[in-house]
């Protein structure tokens, strides 16, 4: 008997076996289900359509839809439309952005802050990731990493509040400084760009740490040893070997942290002051008041999104150019 024939025989036997013993057997023997299944699997094309139609509709209407609707609202003069008012197409909301420094100042401030905070996060977490990947034994690596992960499960508001307690005039930092005798009156850390920076770096550090760690972990130790054998000092090894080979991790970590930093709302409200108003607060302002401000808010959100995305894309392109330049 050939293999084919035996397989066919076995399949026949399986079909004939009492199929109603299990739930699944009963289900596949149930006539309406069989008819439905036969209809659905009549052709690979139809089967694919049944599988694909819901996900595609979902991502179009739920993932893309909100962004498109925001874009559409930003190009109208009234939203939500009051009864008896006609809606017009206009660019006014976008023009408004350039007319008032009250609008574009926070915008540029947000981008500069996000850039600076991203850089600070990178400087702070790179040695930590380096230590984890290079100087901790394999067995302990997960444990050391897990230790850092725990606080990051805690929410944005709770961690922001923790920073408020740390930096307040009667906070822990001022207490310690006074106790050492460095100062005799508290330093007003709070409601400045400094307190905001400490808070945002605190919230985003993990998103930088993980890509850096995985890039450093992949890097073979032999590379550094070869460089050392060829006479490179510690600094040269880092600059010529480790750094270029972890550019990819740096690039993805920075992009992620930059995008997240531009989107914070509660943290700047709670930790920042009047001189550190970020664009998120400006945008939010249009949604607290009467409805006719919505198009302006939407337009500003679109501007913010395009700027953040554009800068991230430019940064990634720059980093990949650097990478290619180094491997040449």
């Amino acid at each position: 008997m050939t293999y084919e024939a035996s397989a066919r025989k076995e399949r026949g036997a399986a079909e004939k076996a009492p199929a109603d013993r299990t739930f699944w057997g009963r289900l596949s023997a149930w006539a309406p289900y069989r008819a439905l299944a036969a209809m659905a699997t009549a052709s690979p094309r139809r089967q694919f359509l049944i599988l694909a139609i819901f996900p595609i509709l979902w991502v179009l209407t739920q993932h893309l839809g909100p962004m498109l609707q925001m874009l559409r609202v930003s190009l109208t003069d009234a939203y939500p439309v009051a009864p008896g008012v006609e809606q017009h197409f206009t660019f006014d909301s976008y023009l408004r952005f350039f007319q008032d420094p009250l609008f574009w100042m926070p915008f540029f401030r947000t981008l500069i802050f996000a850039g600076v905070f991203t850089f600070c996060t990178l400087i702070l977490t790179y040695p930590v990731a380096y230590f984890l990947a290079r100087h901790v034994s394999r067995k302990n690596q997960m444990l050391f990493l897990l230790l850092l992960l725990i606080p990051f499960w805690v929410g944005e508001i709770v961690r922001t509040y923790a920073i408020m307690i740390l930096l307040g005039n009667t906070g822990a930092v001022n207490l310690v400084l006074r106790w050492i005798g460095l100062i005799d009156r508290p330093i007003p850390f709070m409601y400045t760009s400094f307190s905001m920076g400490v808070g945002i770096v605190y919230l985003t550090a993990l998103y930088m740490l993980l890509p850096l760690y995985s890039a450093l972990e992949k890097l073979p130790k032999s590379m550094n040893e070869a460089a050392a054998d060829l006479g490179a000092g510690a600094w040269t090894r880092f600059r010529r070997v480790t750094l270029p080979l972890t550019l990819e991790g740096i690039s993805s970590g920075c992009t992620l942290v930059f995008l997240i930093s531009t989107g914070f709302y509660a943290t700047p409200v709670l930790l920042g002051g009047p001189s550190t108003t970020v664009f998120a607060e400006t945008i939010a302002g249009f949604f607290h008041v009467a409805g006719d401000e919505w198009p302006t808010g939407a337009a500003f959100a679109v501007i913010m999104f395009l700027a953040a995305l554009g800068i991230s894309a430019a940064f990634q392109r720059l980093m990949s150019a650097l990478r290619k330049g180094d491997t040449k």
């Binding site: 996900p55 595609i56 991502v59 179009l60 993932h63 893309l64 839809g65 909100p66 962004m67 609707q69 925001m70 609202v73 939203y79 939500p80 995008l259 997240i260 531009t262 989107g263 914070f264 709302y265 998120a280 945008i283 939010a284 949604f287 919505w294 808010g297 939407a298 959100a301 913010m304 999104f305 953040a308």
Partner: peptide
């Protein structure tokens, strides 16, 4: 489709909140 799938995770918080607010109204 993949790009659209991951889109909500890449939009900065405040912008995503505003977009959802407008779409919910819609």
């Amino acid at each position: 489709v993949f790009g659209m799938t991951v889109l909500p995770a890449l939009i900065p918080g405040i912008i995503s909140a505003i977009a959802f607010r407008i779409y919910a109204r819609y």
